[in-house]
Amino acid sequence: MAQKCRVFAAEFREGAVRVVTETGKPIPEVADDLGINETTLASWVSRATCAEKGQSAGEAEEMARLRREVAQLKKDNKELAMERDVLRSCC
Rank of each mutant, 00 (worst) to 15 (best):
K74A: 08
Q55R: 15
A81I: 14
T39C: 13
K25H: 04
L87K: 06
L66M: 15
L41D: 05
R18Y: 03
K4W: 00
D85Q: 05
E79T: 02
D32G: 14
E38P: 06
R13H: 04
R67K: 11
K53F: 10
S89I: 15
T39M: 11
Q55W: 15
V86Q: 14
I27N: 03
K4N: 00
M1L: 12
L34G: 04
K75C: 02
D76M: 07
G54R: 04
E59V: 01
E22D: 12
A51L: 10
F12M: 06
G54Q: 03
T40G: 13
E69T: 08
R13F: 05
D32Q: 14
T21V: 10
C50K: 02
Q3G: 15
V45M: 05
P26Y: 02
D33K: 10
S46T: 06
A64G: 02
S46F: 07
L80F: 06
R65Y: 15
I27W: 01
P26I: 02
E69W: 04
R18A: 13
V86M: 12
G24N: 11
V7G: 04
R68S: 15
I27C: 03
G35M: 07
L87A: 07
A57P: 12
E83F: 00
N37Q: 03
D76G: 05
M82L: 09
E14V: 07
K4G: 00
E38V: 01
D85N: 06
D85L: 07
M63N: 08
K4F: 00
V7I: 08
L87S: 07
L41K: 02
V20N: 02
M63F: 06
K78M: 09
V17L: 04
Q55N: 15
R47M: 02
A10W: 06
V7A: 06
M1G: 15
A10H: 14
M63H: 08
A71F: 07
Q72G: 08
L80C: 08
R84C: 09
P28S: 05
R6T: 08
R68K: 13
A10R: 14
R47H: 08
L73C: 11
V7S: 08
G35P: 12
K74P: 12
D85A: 08
C91P: 05
V86T: 10
C91V: 11
V70C: 13
E79R: 12
